[in-house]
């Protein structure tokens, strides 16, 4: 047998062996990793419906969506006005109030999870400390949110997250 051809074939063979071994191991890792993602039943539970019919202006309720609190606030017209007139310049995460709700400015729907390190801010109950801007106040590290859910003061980097939702006939569907 020709020595050179022999060597070439061996190298090709061994390279194929390595490749298949690596591909096999990578393929084996997929089920292990993907099994840690949300299971089908967990994903199926990812929709929450809330009836907004009884929510009076100025009131707030908390719903549960994907294991996290969702703040729903029925804002008064003064509050809406106040949120609109804020000077966006100088805000940590500048966003107009119009971008913070869908369809109806009366209902603000945000995740009740502080964007700093995940605590639940105060401000849903009438007796709560609502912070310096009349919205929410996170007791963990002192982040202040305004009535539009925007971060105004404190360590949190972002405005409160808006979950995917739609409101039809006073029925709020989150997720």
């Amino acid at each position: 047998m020709d020595g050179k051809a022999d060597k070439g074939r061996r190298d090709f063979l061994i390279l194929t062996g390595y490749t298949m071994g690596a591909a096999g191991l990578a393929g084996l890792a997929v089920p292990f990793i993907d099994s840690l993602n949300p299971a089908a039943d967990t994903q199926a539970l990812a929709t929450t419906e809330v009836n907004l019919g009884l929510l009076q202006p100025g009131q707030a309720i908390t719903a549960m969506w994907r294991g996290k609190p969702v703040f729903i606030r029925h804002r008064t017209s003064e509050e809406i006005e106040q949120a609109r007139t804020v000077e966006l310049k100088g805000l940590p995460d500048p966003e107009a109030d119009e971008a913070r709700f869908k369809d109806n400015p009366q209902f603000l729907v945000v995740l009740g999870v502080c964007t700093h390190l995940g605590c639940v801010p105060l401000g849903q109950k009438p007796t709560d400390n609502k912070g310096d801007f009349g919205g929410w106040f996170c007791p963990c590290h002192g982040s202040h949110y305004d009535i539009s859910g925007r971060i105004r003061k404190g360590p949190a980097p972002k405005n409160l997250t808006i979950p995917p939702y739609e409101i039809k006939d006073k029925l709020l569907k989150i997720g």
Partner: peptide, 19 residues
């Protein structure tokens, strides 16, 4: 698919082993 893959892999390893 996986059985086919492993079967081909076996053949490759058989030749590597022989070499």
């Amino acid at each position: 698919r996986i059985i086919i893959f492993l079967f081909i892999f076996s053949i490759v390893m058989f030749f590597i082993n022989a070499r």
